[in-house]
Design a protein around this nucleic acid. Structure first.
Lengths: 114, 114
DNA sequence: TTAGATATATAGAGAGTCTATATAAAAATG
DNA sequence: CATTTTTATATAGACTCTCTATATATCTAA
């Protein structure tokens, strides 16, 4: 299946948007991102840590987010991520992409049952 | 990301529902299924044949569809697929799953931009 | 002091999609 | 009549992504 917009892998895009949505307003660290997504969705979305960190690294490498190690007080170091301009554009584009996808998908598979 | 319903791989589920949606009413063969999805979505969804056939085989193996080779008139043999009872239940369940997913996803990632 | 929560990271397995290729027959074109 | 295009199905190999499991380290609470 190859929609005309960037989504080849819906799960990947979904994961990326969920992550980006949490850093739209302010910097967050990985563990915090995972918690926030889980809490905001009442447990519906739940990241494995073994899934989350590789995605964060990939997104940093692709410059959608920027990470920096920080330490406040006696706490252990945490890597905080902020969204980049490229990331904001990507988020907006993918968001529109999902809108189109929903519409198209519902048109074909919208009936509740056979 | 692990939603509570069966969707671990959104693309896979999407592909399966698109295919099932075409055989809800009547039997179809692979090539016909691909064409119908492409036409109904005005080119938005487009299956590679190298993607379509393995999925059909997998779905047949899992008994969501049943295939049978048939030949009408002088035409070459074609493998026609019909949906099974298990397939209908699966379609309905996944359809509800997508509804929940859309709602949850939009709640977190619904804003058009940053 | 020990257990549990916080916090990040990666290796290896497993699953799925994509590109490319192979085969074959019917229909259309020259 | 020969050739090309379209119809039709199939699979191998590469590539990518997610998941499980494991490793490391610190802080907090019992």
């Amino acid at each position: 299946m190859k929609p005309s917009f960037e989504i080849q892998n819906l799960t990947k895009s979904c994961n990326e948007l969920l992550i980006l949505s949490t850093v739209l307003d302010e910097k967050k660290h990985g563990y915090q991102i995972a918690l926030e997504i889980e809490e905001k969705s009442a447990g519906y979305f739940k990241f494995n840590h073994g899934t989350l960190y590789p995605i964060l690294h990939k997104m940093e490498k692709e410059k959608y987010i920027k990470g920096s190690w920080q330490q406040e007080g006696p706490k252990r170091k945490r890597k905080y991520y902020t969204i980049t301009e490229k990331g904001k554009k990507y988020y907006a584009a993918q968001n529109l992409g999902w809108h189109d996808f929903f519409q198209q998908f519902m048109k074909l598979c919208g009936e509740k049952s056979a």
